[in-house]
Computed example of a mutant assay.
Amino acid sequence: MTRFDAADAADRRKLFAEAVLAHRNRGSPFLTVEVDPADVPGVDPGGEDDDGEGTPVPWIQFAEKTFNLDCTDAELDRLKGLLDEFPEFRIERIDRPEEAEGANVRVTARSDASRLGQFLDRALQVTYDLDDDYRAWVTEL
């Protein structure tokens, strides 16, 4: 891989597919994609929300055939709705730690890198209610 970020749907999907292939070829434990803080509603580029508190930037990790992400109940509802577009993907597990306000969700799929890249892009955009031109970074590979 020679680039690690993209800001339009076609480029993001290509980037994500390339990241999945690189992850598989390297045998790395997982890959991580994060949204640019400047593109997250209510978060300034420094990573703080409107109240000055630190707000986690949306991220998704992928390992083998499983996506892992944290989300609120509203975000989880949007993710569940998105799965209608991806019938080969399913929620495998939802954990709700007592010390957290949301849920950790694991979505499994057996698919090619291109389809996994499409899902990753749509999951970030739909789940976290991002604009079409959000920028994402492959931060760990």
Rank of each mutant, 00 (worst) to 15 (best):
residue 35 V to F: 07
residue 33 V to L: 04
residue 129 D to H: 06
residue 134 Y to I: 10
residue 17 A to E: 09
residue 21 L to V: 05
residue 22 A to L: 12
residue 63 A to G: 10
residue 59 W to G: 09
residue 50 D to F: 13
residue 11 D to C: 09
residue 115 R to E: 02
residue 15 L to E: 11
residue 94 I to M: 00
residue 131 D to R: 07
residue 106 R to Q: 12
residue 127 T to N: 13
residue 46 G to N: 14
residue 28 S to Y: 05
residue 128 Y to S: 15
residue 57 V to K: 01
residue 106 R to I: 11
residue 26 R to D: 11
residue 97 P to G: 09
residue 55 T to H: 14
residue 47 G to K: 08
residue 95 D to I: 02
residue 87 P to A: 01
residue 69 L to Y: 08
residue 40 V to K: 13
residue 134 Y to S: 14
residue 105 V to T: 03
residue 89 F to G: 01
residue 60 I to T: 06
residue 99 E to T: 12
residue 67 F to E: 09
residue 104 N to K: 05
residue 140 E to G: 02
residue 122 R to T: 08
residue 135 R to G: 11
residue 12 R to C: 04
residue 12 R to K: 03
residue 11 D to H: 04
residue 65 K to Y: 09
residue 98 E to F: 06
residue 79 L to S: 10
residue 79 L to N: 06
residue 104 N to M: 09
residue 115 R to M: 01
residue 83 L to R: 15
residue 128 Y to D: 04
residue 11 D to L: 07
residue 124 L to D: 04
residue 44 D to M: 06
residue 132 D to W: 13
residue 50 D to S: 15
residue 62 F to D: 01
residue 54 G to L: 14
residue 3 R to D: 11
residue 139 T to I: 07
residue 101 E to P: 02
residue 81 G to C: 08
residue 28 S to Q: 05
residue 79 L to V: 08
residue 134 Y to K: 10
residue 53 E to K: 08
residue 112 D to Q: 07
residue 2 T to R: 11
residue 122 R to I: 01
residue 120 L to V: 13
residue 48 E to Q: 12
residue 24 R to A: 04
residue 128 Y to F: 14
residue 7 A to D: 13
residue 38 A to W: 11
residue 84 D to I: 00
residue 96 R to P: 04
residue 119 F to Q: 05
residue 27 G to E: 14
residue 2 T to V: 14
residue 111 S to Q: 05
residue 122 R to C: 11
residue 66 T to M: 11
residue 12 R to G: 01
residue 89 F to I: 07
residue 80 K to S: 12
residue 75 E to L: 12
residue 35 V to R: 14
residue 11 D to Y: 12
residue 95 D to F: 10
residue 121 D to N: 11
residue 135 R to Y: 12
residue 110 R to G: 15
residue 5 D to G: 02
residue 82 L to Q: 05
